[in-house]
Design a protein around this nucleic acid. Structure first.
Lengths: 222, 222
DNA sequence: AGCCGATCGGGTACGGTGTTCGCAAACACC
DNA sequence: GGTGTTTGCGAACACCGTACCCGATCGGCT
């Protein structure tokens, strides 16, 4: 029944009783739920309740929960506003990365999905095509371009993931522990880092993004 | 009860009935289970069964399942064989990254944990200290060094994660879909990538690692 | 107009999960 | 030897993803 990715399976059958809902509608409900209460709240029952129906009904639209997560992740790609390349790949990738971060800030659950199951649907494919267009002139082979795309997406997801958890309880505990270890005498460099501290509110993203990009492009066009 | 990270809580009480097991023993059982059957198989019941006891008993050693996952991830850091810096940071980071990849290949579940909850325990702290020692002479501020550590770990986890799933069913479906999209006429660059193909078995890791590292270190010392 | 074939809707049920509660058992110490 | 404290762990709870089944509902054909 589900031997292929969901986007290769027909959404509705051609004959029989017509469906009352659509994949898009269910995806929207799931995204709203995740935005409000986090990814763990996206259970089949809760999404179904959001639509005023029962959990079993969702399986008419989606083979399993992972399919739904894939739909959610791919749907966010519609929030890009892809512009034709300007001719300056580094600048274009900077803009692309910034947009990506903005989207992930809007959907705090997205980094987790990107990092653990990076599935590409129609939206992801369009995004990938755009990326390939931007890096078209660069002296990179096909594999390197694909690696670049994955690496860029992954890096931004990591940044957003970290940023989203920065104010959370887990991060508080982590720094508390590292501070503890830094004071045990056996980790002088770590202690030095804590001393230098300097958690100035400056946004580190642009600089980091540039570093990653220069690494990606093989230090051309800096 | 569990306001702090598990490594800041005493493993055993000083008085009363002595415990029959240890965190290390439980961690080892969980790691064995994960190595054999994957991370999803690491349920409290299954881990307990591995030790010939009941699920509830584990909660005397661990506050919840996430604590156990943190213990597992940190325990793998013991598999590093950290050597004193040679004076060539780029080379040292190269061997460090290679070791990291080897460990993640041994424990296919590790990348997921590193990517989603990058908690540092005693092992992670030692690793971080080692990293800081290696990059000590470089003209980077404290924040940049910490970012470099996170980025390096994250990148290697992504690589290992992708590599582990390369032969799997999900990846097969993904490429099947992308091939389908590449043939729809609307994604010429993607089609070009498929045409260039060239999935030669060459190991891409060393080159990729070098790229990421040069990006990290601000293109010094290449 | 009426039937028929096929799909949809969704209640119910199954097996599994993380976690809490409560109590009996086991030890260290006075 | 009693006592205080901790551990071991079966039972129970709430929730999860998912399979099954059957009545409801439609389009197309006769």
């Amino acid at each position: 029944m589900s031997e292929e990715v969901i986007w290769l399976r027909p959404e509705h059958a051609a004959v029989g009783r017509p469906a009352e809902r659509s994949r898009a509608e269910i995806t929207a409900a799931a995204i709203g739920l995740a935005d409000r209460e986090g990814l763990d709240a996206v259970s089949m029952r809760k999404v179904a309740a959001e639509l005023g129906t029962g959990a079993a009904s969702l399986y008419r639209y989606v083979a399993n929960r992972d399919d739904l997560l894939d739909l959610m992740a791919d749907a966010t790609a519609a929030e890009y506003e892809l512009r034709p390349p300007s001719g300056d790949p580094l600048a274009d990738l900077g803009v692309l990365g910034t947009r990506s971060l903005a989207i992930m800030r809007r959907h705090p659950w997205l980094p987790t999905l990107v990092l653990t199951r990076s599935t590409l649907g129609p939206g992801g494919a369009d995004l990938l095509e755009h990326f390939l267009t931007v890096v078209d002139g660069l002296p990179l082979d096909a594999t390197a371009k694909m690696e670049g795309f994955a690496l860029l997406q992954g890096f931004i997801a990591m940044y957003a993931h970290h940023e989203a958890g920065a104010e959370g309880e887990l991060m508080r505990r982590q720094t508390a522990y590292l501070a503890h270890v830094a004071g045990d005498g056996g980790h002088p460099r770590l202690a030095a880092v804590f001393a230098e501290a300097g958690d100035t509110g400056a946004d580190r993203f642009p600089g980091l993004l540039r570093r990653v990009l220069t690494g990606l492009l093989g230090d051309i066009g800096a």
